[in-house]
């Protein structure tokens, strides 16, 4: 691969992720609207929101870590996208692999946590404490899934994982070979996206949207951008592990949108669980299903 193609991929991959992510946010809001028998926002609404937030006249900062936190939150995901292969573009996926990707995906959260910390608002700190607790909860089934997939395919290189699946057709998909792990992965996905019933760290009526409590203007705009990336990354990761990645862009996007639609639909049907309820649930069912799936995979 020449340097030019690589550079172009490195630029294109985050850009595509952002655009697809915008439509995912739109889908999220439209699904909510449909379930509540509303019309929902217009197509360009997510973009309007972001442009408006970046274009605010006063931008209220609480200090330099607040600023850097937002930079890290967006930048970390921009970097993560280049580790995530999409049809026709591998970026630097073979330089990092699955484990690295999982850890790079924690960088935005870390940046956000530090930024929120400097806001000196206890609502935000409580939100971060809950978000980290939630991470502890959903990461346990998630790493079981990651381990199972890496063991089954014998590699952590996402490019290889996708190639192996595509060679076998639908029968070769991770979901066909490891249905239990795929189910556990869905649970983890729900937690990872922070959607109801695991929305404990946003909790608008209780802790005033937690981490976002002091975010205004481009700070909130940065978080909106981050949300686009987050939805995209989670969806593409799941598709790469279980649904054979993308043969071409059409099928790829179909699969990704379908996967992301599941947690979104579930979200609007549930109330919010308490933190300890979430942990108990996450450490019980998905972990049991995941370990069972792992036992099948390994023997």
């Amino acid at each position: 691969m020449s340097i030019q193609t690589l550079l172009m991929e490195l630029v294109l991959m985050p850009l595509v992720a952002f655009v697809v992510g915008l439509f995912m946010v739109l889908m999220l809001r439209r699904i909510g609207a449909k379930l509540q028998r509303r019309v929902g926002p217009p197509v360009m609404q997510p973009l309007y929101d972001i442009v408006k937030l970046y274009g605010k006249k006063t931008q209220i900062s609480h200090g330099w870590m607040h600023d850097i936190g937002i930079v890290m939150a967006v930048g970390g995901y921009v970097a993560a996208e280049t580790l995530l292969p999409v049809p026709g573009m591998d970026g630097i996926a073979d330089k990092g692999g699955l484990v690295t990707l999982v850890y790079v995906m924690m960088i935005p959260s870390l940046g956000l946590a530090l930024g929120v910390g400097q806001c000196a608002n206890p609502n935000g700190s409580i939100g971060i404490a809950r978000a980290l607790t939630a991470m502890l909860a959903y990461d346990v089934p998630f790493v079981i899934v990651v381990f199972g997939v890496a063991w089954y395919f014998g590699t952590t290189n996402l490019v290889d994982i996708i190639a192996i699946q595509q060679a076998g057709g639908v029968a070769g998909w991770g979901a066909t070979a490891m249905p239990l792990l795929a189910i556990a992965g869905l649970f983890a996905l729900q937690g990872m996206l922070g959607k109801q019933p695991f929305e404990i760290y946003i909790a608008p009526a209780e802790i005033a949207t937690g981490p976002m409590v002091e975010m205004s203007g481009k700070y909130l705009g940065g978080l909106f951008v981050m949300q686009c990336f987050q939805l995209y990354t989670a969806g593409v990761l799941y598709v790469s592990l279980f649904l054979g990645g993308g043969e071409n862009w059409l099928f790829f996007l179909l699969k990704v949108f379908a996967v992301v639609a599941i947690p979104m639909t579930v979200a609007f049907l549930f109330p919010r669980y308490k933190t300890e309820q979430m942990i108990r649930l996450m450490w019980k069912w998905p972990v049991m299903i995941g370990l069972l799936g792992l036992a099948f995979v390994m023997h």
Binding site: M72, A73, G75, V104
Partner: peptide, 10 residues
């Protein structure tokens, strides 16, 4: 790439 990402974020 991480720092390039931070650069874009900045």
């Amino acid at each position: 790439v991480l720092f390039a990402g931070f650069g874009i974020g900045a």
